[in-house]
């Protein structure tokens, strides 16, 4: 079902206005699904619309790098691309294009953004589990176990992301990885002794 706010998320039919801001849940008139809708004053605020790109009037005029038919009015300070007003993002007093922000090429933007955060503790936990499951195959256990321990220690030394979390994965990775490595070594020794003892 397409995401349409004022339609039932279940059947897609529009909701009547009197469903809004009720104290108790109502019912969708179409599919009878239990429904709640609450609107806030922000909905009725007059929206400020962004600047629109102007069409290029003459053939010789510079056009926007992202919109070929629009007249360029400003140059991106990150990559030098010509931009129309629609693509112009003003950030810390600089004019940059959305692609430069996305690539992290604007230092001012980097300081004020939440970049994706790699969870080394989760990786350590998964590797620890995998190494425990595969220790009897010797070589995967020997490789994955130390990797899990390494990721676990690295995650402890690394700052957390913006939201708090307990590093259970790191503990799991260090313990699981160590146990798996030991088991894999014992397993290898057992095999080695079994083969060498054979007549």
């Amino acid at each position: 079902m397409p995401r349409r706010m004022f339609a039932c998320p279940n059947c897609g039919e529009p909701w009547p206005a009197d469903l809004a801001n009720r104290l108790m849940p109502g019912r969708c008139p179409s599919c009878r699904a239990e429904a709640r809708l609450h609107v806030f004053p922000a909905l009725f605020r007059s929206e400020s619309t962004g600047a629109e790109g102007e069409s290029a009037a003459l053939d010789g005029e510079s056009t926007c790098f992202y919109h070929a038919g629009k007249r360029a009015t400003v140059i991106c300070e990150g990559c030098g691309a010509f931009m129309c007003p629609l693509c112009d993002v003003e950030l810390a007093g600089r004019h940059v294009c959305p692609r430069c922000i996305e690539r992290g090429q604007v230092p001012e933007a980097r300081e004020t953004m939440i970049p994706p955060h790699t969870r080394l503790d989760q990786i350590a936990g998964s590797l620890g589990l995998l190494s425990l499951l595969t220790f009897f195959m010797c070589f995967p256990g020997i490789i994955l176990g130390p990797l899990a321990v390494g990721f676990g220690i690295a995650s402890l030394a690394r700052p957390r992301g913006p939201v708090p979390y307990v590093r259970w994965g790191a503990a799991g990775g260090i313990i699981g990885g160590s146990v798996a490595t030991l088991l894999a070594i014992v397993w290898m020794l057992f095999f080695f002794s079994a083969f060498t003892a054979a007549p």
Partner: peptide
């Protein structure tokens, strides 16, 4: 929070 215009949910089968 200042930008949220509406919240809603509906049960699904």
């Amino acid at each position: 929070l200042a930008d949220i215009q509406a919240i809603s949910y509906a049960t699904t089968p």
